[in-house]
Computed example of a mutant assay.
Amino acid sequence: MEEKDVGKLIQTSAEVHEASALPCARVVHTAPDAPRTAEMQPLPDSVAAQPIEEKSPAQWAYERLILYIRNFEEQLDDEHEVAMGFVGGDTGVLRIEGLGYFDPDIITFYGAGEDGVRMQLIQHVSQLSVMLRAMPKAPEVQEPRRIGFRLVSALERDKQADG
């Protein structure tokens, strides 16, 4: 190994600590022109600013769900909104209107079913399994509602208030 290569293997303790705090994400697709995914995008400052080890499992799951929802919505046309299909059950689809967490380990989805009936899913992070679906926007709504943008904005406001 050449001397210049050895230098690349040596890290300061600060670099090792920083690398351990950064999340690792990866995605591979069969199609070279596959849409950009949440794993491919940099974390917003509001998410990256707080070290992972200081976050509860609920907060960390909440923040990453927001990134997945925002990315999914970016690929929708103006006739569709994001909804959530339930995995492993026959309870239908929830049009996502809100997302929350309760430390240390609960994630909550708020919304309405396809029939307009109010729904709420309360889930432990160890059981988290979410399928995002495109659902036609409600006929009475002129523009599709984009919850992902609002969720990211809320993260940024919360970070500014804390900071």
Rank of each mutant, 00 (worst) to 15 (best):
F149T: 15
A61L: 03
L9V: 10
P23I: 08
V130F: 04
R64T: 12
L99F: 02
G89D: 06
V6H: 03
P144H: 03
E140A: 14
D45A: 10
S129C: 11
G88T: 04
A58P: 02
G92P: 07
E2R: 14
S126I: 09
F72H: 07
S13T: 08
L67N: 05
R157I: 08
V28A: 11
H80A: 08
A161L: 12
H29W: 08
D90I: 01
D90P: 00
V28F: 09
M40L: 09
D158Y: 04
D105N: 11
E114I: 12
M135D: 05
A34C: 06
I10V: 15
L94P: 02
E3C: 06
E54V: 02
V141H: 10
Q41I: 11
V27N: 08
A58S: 13
S13R: 11
E2Y: 09
V82P: 03
V93C: 00
R26W: 10
A25P: 00
M131H: 06
A31K: 08
K137G: 05
P139H: 06
T30L: 14
I69R: 03
Y110T: 09
A138R: 12
M40I: 00
E73K: 02
R150K: 14
L155P: 01
G148S: 06
I10A: 07
Y62W: 08
G100D: 14
A25C: 08
G111N: 09
Q142D: 15
L65G: 04
A49E: 13
P32C: 05
K159M: 14
D90T: 10
R26N: 07
G7D: 06
I66R: 00
M119P: 02
M84T: 03
H124V: 11
H124C: 04
L43A: 13
P139W: 04
A61V: 09
P32A: 12
K8Y: 11
K159L: 09
A58Y: 00
T91K: 15
A21F: 01
E74Q: 14
A61H: 07
E97T: 11
S153C: 03
M135G: 00
P51K: 03
L43W: 15
G92H: 06
V125Q: 01
Q120N: 07
Y110C: 03
V125I: 10
Q142Y: 03
E156K: 08
A112I: 02
D77A: 04
K8T: 13
W60E: 12
W60N: 11
G113V: 05
Q50P: 00
